[in-house]
Nucleic acid binder design. Sequence first.
DNA 1: TTTGACTTGACAATATTAGTCAAATATAAT
DNA 2: ATTATATTTGACTAATATTGTCAAGTCAAA
Lengths: 108, 108
Amino acid sequence: MKNTKLVGELLREKREEKGLLLRHVSAELDIDTAILSKIERSERKATKEQMLKLAEVLDLNKEDLLVQYLSEKILYEIKDEELGEKALKVAEQQIKYINKKNKGIEGV
Amino acid sequence: MKNTKLVGELLREKREEKGLLLRHVSAELDIDTAILSKIERSERKATKEQMLKLAEVLDLNKEDLLVQYLSEKILYEIKDEELGEKALKVAEQQIKYINKKNKGIEGV
DNA sequence: TTTGACTTGACAATATTAGTCAAATATAAT
DNA sequence: ATTATATTTGACTAATATTGTCAAGTCAAA
């Protein structure tokens, strides 16, 4: 597996690597440092907009970060569900089916 | 694939098969018929508790229904996301990893 | 043409999420 | 040790999303 790090951990690492303070980055996002602190420690979820902004500010790959972010959102949704893994598999089958169907239609 | 029907469609079919009216079933769930109507037409999501009750009232397999229900919740979460399918795959990898880790710990 | 089943949409109540702020805790430099 | 700066914590507020009611509307069958 490529990466088992939480989004928050990635953000903190990269921020520190760049020598930026919470206050610098949170100012760009226009939120209090408290929230960014919580995001980095996975105590809160960021919004999608904040993620995109963070990718910019911290020079992280937007797509990779977003994928990881969405994945965590999905996992959060099923974290207490015994049937979560099964549901994920079904969801994957269904999204494949849907995407296949749409591909067929796009060309009309 | 086993089943491409939406949960709502399943519910409506089964209810009609049993000759039950919205009012009968919604009374058991203790909600207005309007909501059940919307649930059956996928205009609203049911709660987990409602799903379990519906499985009972309509003699549907609880596990299957819940899996399908959770799957739809997941899909709803990523319905407008270009990266949704990728995120799903990552989520699946990660949940496998987490479950494996927990299995290891359970036996301590 | 009325009756019963379902649908629709406006609205209200409630729950969840996103945020601020100030005080408490580190961390680090004098 | 003392102060200065960075981060964390938690109580509180604001905004948004979810869940529900209700009444009026549509539709089909008797």
